[in-house]
């Protein structure tokens, strides 16, 4: 957090992004990427009205790996449900009480819920304290809420300290 690099993680992301776009790691590409990674955050920094700090980068990495695994599992679950005969699913609309606050953490949690097994986030409550989830096939709604809390929300709370 200094003057030249107001958002260090974002700058790193932009540099990696540029190298991926170029599809090579050469001196020229790295130099151009570094210039862009410094100039773009400086130019757009004032437009960001929310401030997010990654307090635990290691937990964030762990979170990402867990998420990737769960996406693969959820794909197989949904494929199994689709290929089974219809009318055997038990959909439900569940209210998920949020413990975290702030627009970025809630967005990350809502996206996670949409990407993981059998659930889609449909709406944020007006007071911002709860998420409405549509679950494709649940028998025990409380257990599903408990699992999301334990698996994702706890880690997000640790990462963003909110």
């Amino acid at each position: 957090m200094n003057k030249l690099l107001p958002a260090p993680w974002w700058s790193l992301f932009l540099l990696v992004f540029w190298l991926l776009l170029q599809n090579t790691v050469s001196f020229g590409a790295a130099l151009m990427g570094t210039i862009l990674a410094i100039v773009i955050p400086l130019y757009t920094h004032r437009a960001r009205d929310y401030r997010v700090t990654l307090h635990r980068p290691l937990v964030a990495g762990q979170y990402f790996i867990i998420l990737l695994g769960d996406i693969v599992v959820s794909n197989f679950n949904i494929a199994a449900i689709i290929l089974r005969p219809r009318k055997s699913i038990q959909p439900a609309l569940i209210e998920f009480p949020l413990e975290i606050s702030g627009s970025v953490p809630i967005t990350v949690l809502a996206s996670t819920i949409s990407l993981t097994p059998g659930t889609i986030s449909a709406e944020l409550g007006r007071d911002g304290r709860s998420l409405l989830i549509h679950a494709l096939n649940v028998t025990d709604a409380d257990a599903a809420i408990e699992q999301i809390k334990r698996r994702y929300e706890r880690r997000l709370k640790e990462i963003f300290q909110c």
């Binding site: 996406i71 959820s74 794909n75 949904i78 494929a79 449900i81 689709i82 290929l83 219809r86 009318k87 699913i89 959909p91 949409s114 990407l115 059998g118 889609i120 449909a122 549509h134 494709l136």
Partner: peptide
């Protein structure tokens, strides 16, 4: 399978699950 889910699942909300996940 994702596209098949659009056809087979019973209602709008359930159909959303197929293209986002599969």
């Amino acid at each position: 399978i994702g596209s098949l889910g659009l056809l087979r699942l019973p209602d709008f909300m359930a159909r959303l699950h197929a293209p986002t996940k599969a």
